[in-house]
């Protein structure tokens, strides 16, 4: 019987090394350990063993059986691991094939810039206000210190609906609307569409966008204007940006200033810079202390309150930010353009 067992072990070991897949291994398991398997046959033959030898023999047979089971199981694990590896290898994909594109659109670059600007001012405690695009001459001009025959009307060639109604030429009438309806303190910005008589070309558009800001409170001075806009410039263009305030003229502010920022692209080092054209400065906005005449006309006492206002062209800021060289692209809605932002 011992010989028989040795033979079975030997045969099984040989067969194991030949079992190259789980199927042939399974066949081997049946052949050895199955109901009609060789080990089962041995166990069945235990009856023929003498009673005194039976316990020792039985132990031996069980040991061998356990050993064979283990050998087969180990081989089964090996095989299944190898087969899994093979399968995974076959399942490999070419990861350089482009991904399947989900359907997703994008927001207009101007909207993205408006949101960025808006976020900055909202963070400084500003609310966002709104006003009509078709506006009365009264709000668009008169209340802003630009009476009918004032030379400053030359600066704005307006679209007229009739003698009293215009397409607003700037977002400033919202200032006047806010001042005539709300009590200070006032801290608002107003993004919106504005209109001027300009033929369409790479740098002009009859329709464009501005954002207006207005602060009215007790004790507001030119320093607050500068502080607010310095802060805006830093958050919009980065900590290292410098601002330059130059005296200027707007009928509705006095003193007035134009604000330039140091060129974020070349820092003034590139004479052919597409953003600053080598000057090192980019004109970004106009601003000033609200003209006392404007305050008075809007029902705010200039002895008690003062304030500042600013306005900037969003299209230009957008173009500068992304390096867009033709204003018309903003309104053509070419998907090859819109998809870039």
């Amino acid at each position: 019987m011992q010989d028989q067992l040795d033979k079975i072990v030997k045969e099984t070991q040989d067969a194991l090394s030949n079992a190259k897949d789980t199927a042939s291994l399974e066949a081997l398991r049946v052949k050895v350990l199955g109901k009609k398997g060789s080990m089962t046959q041995i166990l069945r033959g235990m009856g023929a063993v003498s009673a005194d030898q039976r316990p020792a023999m039985g132990r031996l047979v069980n040991e061998v059986r356990a050993k064979l089971e283990e050998l087969i199981n180990r081989q089964a694990e090996n095989l299944s691991r190898m087969e899994k590896e093979m399968r995974l290898k076959l399942e490999a994909v070419d990861v350089t094939i482009p991904g399947t594109e989900p359907v997703m659109g994008k927001l207009h670059p101007l909207t993205q810039v408006v949101r960025q600007v808006q976020d900055i001012f909202v963070g400084m405690g500003f609310a966002v206000a709104d006003g009509p695009e078709v506006e009365t001459d009264h709000y668009n001009f008169e209340l802003l210190n630009v009476p009918k025959n004032h030379p400053a009307r030359d600066m704005q060639d307006s679209f007229y609906i009739n003698g009293e109604i215009v397409l607003r030429t700037h977002t400033s009438p919202v200032q006047a609307r806010i001042m005539t309806t709300r009590k200070p303190p006032i801290r608002i910005i107003c993004p919106g569409r504005v209109y001027r008589v300009d033929q369409v070309d790479a740098t002009h558009s009859p329709v464009f966008h501005q954002i207006e800001g207005l602060v009215i409170d007790k004790g507001i001075h030119l320093g607050h204007l500068k502080g607010t806009l310095d802060e805006f410039a830093r958050r919009m263009y980065g900590e290292s940006v410098k601002t330059r305030f130059r005296p200027s003229f707007f009928p509705f502010t006095e003193p007035s200033a134009e604000v330039d920022i140091s060129c974020y692209l070349c820092g003034g080092k590139d004479p052919n810079c597409r953003v600053c054209h080598g000057s090192g400065w980019i004109e970004v906005l106009g601003c000033g202390m609200v003209n006392p005449n404007v305050l008075t006309m809007c029902g705010i006492d200039p002895q008690e309150y003062s304030g500042f206002a600013f306005g900037m062209g969003l299209d230009r800021i957008t173009n500068g930010k992304y390096g867009i060289t033709d204003l018309r692209l903003l309104f053509e809605n070419d998907l090859r353009f819109l998809d870039q932002f």
Partner: peptide
């Protein structure tokens, strides 16, 4: 006065005071 004195001498000061009406509607 300021333009000859120099716009670059304008002090830069942040707005102060409580404003609880800010934000988007």
């Amino acid at each position: 006065v300021q333009r000859i004195y120099g716009y670059d001498t304008i002090p830069s000061e942040l707005l102060s005071g409580s404003m609880n009406q800010g934000g988007l509607t």
